[in-house]
């Protein structure tokens, strides 16, 4: 049971976040909520990336005086590569969010609303 939980709980969480975020993006018409949805998808992605690097007996991938990463020629640390990828993914998510918010501010100024439907009507 513990094994089952260890294997699945983070994956389920990551997928739940992605699903919730995608649902928000698809159904909402408010630009701000869409941005929040995108952020939730990003969190899900990041959680997923960290999850594939982790195993229950892993140690942190940093050499210290007490932390040995390799035992008998066998690496026991968490996988450091996805952890470096997640850093990239976080920064990219931050950049996209910043730009999306800037566009949202500008849209609010020009249209006086953040509702996608009203913006479309405004363009007609």
């Amino acid at each position: 049971m513990v094994d089952f939980l260890q294997n699945w709980v983070y994956l389920t969480g990551a997928m739940a976040l992605v699903g919730i975020g995608l649902y928000i993006v698809l159904t909402n018409t408010n630009i701000f909520r869409i941005i929040v949805g995108l952020n939730i998808i990003d969190s899900g992605t990041n959680l997923f990336i960290v999850t594939i690097a982790w195993h229950p007996k892993s140690v942190m991938p940093i050499y210290t005086a007490t932390n040995n990463l390799v035992v008998n020629g066998h690496v026991i640390s968490a996988d450091p590569l996805p952890q470096s990828l997640v850093l990239t993914a976080i920064v990219i998510g931050l950049g996209t969010t910043a730009l999306a918010l800037a566009i949202a501010v500008k849209i609010y100024q020009k249209y006086g609303t953040l509702d996608v439907r009203k913006i479309k009507e405004g363009d007609r």
Binding site: W8, T51, I52, P56, H74, V75, S77, D79, P80
Partner: peptide, 17 residues
């Protein structure tokens, strides 16, 4: 996943070593 993840099966093994 979980217990089955093995860093030695990835290219990260050399980064750690």
């Amino acid at each position: 996943k979980g217990n089955e993840v093995n860093v030695n099966n990835t290219v990260s093994r050399f980064y750690v070593m």
